[in-house]
Nucleic acid binder design. Sequence first.
DNA 1: GAGAAAACTGACCGATCGATCAATATCTAC
DNA 2: GTAGATATTGATCGATCGGTCAGTTTTCTC
Lengths: 215, 215
Amino acid sequence: MSETPKRSKNQLKSHIRAQNQALILSTAERVFARQGLAKTTTQMIANEAGLPKANIHYYYRSKKDLLEAVLESILQLWLDSVSQFNVETGPRHNLTRYISEKLDQSRLNPNASKVFAMALIGEEPFVLEFLRRYFVDELQKEKQTIDTWVAQGLMKPVAVEHLFITIWAMTQTYADFDAQVKILLQKDELDESDFDEAKQFVTRMVLLSCGVEEA
Amino acid sequence: MSETPKRSKNQLKSHIRAQNQALILSTAERVFARQGLAKTTTQMIANEAGLPKANIHYYYRSKKDLLEAVLESILQLWLDSVSQFNVETGPRHNLTRYISEKLDQSRLNPNASKVFAMALIGEEPFVLEFLRRYFVDELQKEKQTIDTWVAQGLMKPVAVEHLFITIWAMTQTYADFDAQVKILLQKDELDESDFDEAKQFVTRMVLLSCGVEEA
DNA sequence: GAGAAAACTGACCGATCGATCAATATCTAC
DNA sequence: GTAGATATTGATCGATCGGTCAGTTTTCTC
């Protein structure tokens, strides 16, 4: 976040600030995901973080500021994950890895996915702006990579936008709508084996549609 | 709703009640979808329906009652749509029809999909109970139908639960997250041709994964 | 350890919203 | 037409919530 000037011990310029901001941010992400954006009160976040409400407002002026801070940390994480497509290792490896990684994210951090989903459905300007600013260009890079693979005969031509839209839909549905998935699979909780089945299923679907043979 | 006793003209027992409830219900669905559940105030619904707020509460005791009424009408519509699988016309026709129908629903009534999505993410007990009560059994019927097709050699065996989870995810993403889709497709509005491309893409994916040749 | 900066917090405020209610009006059955 | 049922609505209440602020405590700097 900030440069680290010469300093005794291991304290940043304002270690208290950094520490409390991090605590509030992670707590807020959890509560936002559980309660929804509008239903979440600053009091809930304060209680769960073990701080007085006024202290929350000391670090984040408004509830909207706090929400945007949470969203930014989520979106940055996701952007990093998309940008790891590597043209040299070919479509099978990259698509398999990406789907696996997205489903791991859904399993390990469903809250983040839900916060993003709710903000997107609600068309929060902050999220739309972030997508416009960063994801559109990123998708162009993946499009070029896939074009290269097609030219090399490694896969069939596909509608890249729809490919990513459907991959995101399929992988995130296991986080966003996990309540529905649990009901349909008749399970109280989804375990790693459920996500492994989902990985297999989604990966097979995607590879087939790209004309890539499975391993 | 109620039985129709012998009556002059074409009026039900309480035509005023039925009329106003219908007006409030359709207005509420629209506003809930636009504003989100918690952000929607009864005043907004009242304004948009052209009624005083107290009149809304005369027909629906609480905001929660109204939300549940809206959700029930949405879920009933969807349940009807799932239950049209017909074993006699084979997998290709049925899967193609179902995906087309789901994407038509996403295009023509994105609001309904969004209301459901938000309620599901928020794990509204009413929605979960409805899914448990009706959709689980319905899915069993589709499972049997598909088993029959597999036995007839019309398609490969698939994980039916994951098949429907992913079909729902892919088709509803074009309604729920249309804002994201618009940004990635660089369009101000999604038109029928965008949905036709989505239909083609999703249908091809699903049919390939089921081992069904395309038409 | 003194002075300044940063952090903390209880108490409070204004606005909003769901819900109620008493009144009045309208409709229906006979 | 009249009595009872049904429908309508302005006014208002109580609760909740985001946000503020003044006063205090803690931490940092020299």
